[in-house]
Each structure stands twice: as C-alpha cells, then as structure tokens.
Computed example of a mutant assay.
Amino acid sequence: MLDILKRINELAHKKKNEGLTEIEMEEMNRLRKMYLEIFRGSMQELLLNTTVVDPEGADVTPKKLRTEQARNRKKAIWST
C-alpha cells in the first residue's frame, strides 16, 4: 500500500509542476481507486472488530454493527 501511495504522490507532484500525459492520468486514477479499496477494506475490518462499551462497562454496540459482525464471523479451522 505504501508503494501505491508513494506513486500517487509522485504523479500528483508531477501534475502540479509539469502536467501529466493521458497514460499517467489513467495510472493515477487506477492507483487512487486501488488505494481507496484497500483503505475502505481496512476500515471495514476495523469496524467489524469493534465493540462499543458505555462508562458502566455494558456492551452498547449498535444492533446494525452486531448483525454485520455476526454475518461476517468465520468458523475457526480447529472447530468442528
């Protein structure tokens, strides 16, 4: 992911100073889409592993999130 971000920044800098060719613009757009897909996937994983707890220690995770967590829960390989 860092390589993608580095290349996006290189292209953005070149765009600002010199301008980009059509091929470079396409590459930049493709890399941005890839970066956003990775970022969104990472955020989704973070949310699916989050529990909301109130000051008294009670689980107050929203029902919608709990439902999504249950749907995405995977069966452990060691269980039968």
Rank of each mutant, 00 (worst) to 15 (best):
N29C: 06
M25G: 05
Y35L: 01
E68L: 11
K14W: 01
L36D: 11
K75T: 08
K63C: 02
L5Q: 00
E24H: 09
M43W: 14
A70D: 10
E24D: 15
E37H: 02
L36R: 08
F39I: 12
Q44P: 02
E18D: 14
K16H: 05
E37W: 00
T50H: 06
M1C: 05
K6T: 02
A70C: 09
G57Y: 05
L48D: 10
A70I: 15
G19N: 11
G19W: 02
G19Y: 02
R73F: 11
G41I: 06
M28G: 05
A58G: 05
K6W: 03
I4W: 00
T50W: 14
S42E: 13
R71F: 13
A12N: 14
T80M: 13
I38N: 02
E10M: 06
S42D: 07
F39Y: 13
E24Q: 15
E45C: 13
K64H: 07
S79D: 08
R73W: 11
E68D: 03
T50M: 12
K64F: 12
L31I: 00
E24S: 10
T21R: 11
R40K: 11
I4C: 05
M28L: 07
D3M: 01
N9R: 15
L5P: 00
K15S: 14
K33N: 09
Y35H: 01
T61V: 12
K33Y: 01
A58D: 11
N29T: 13
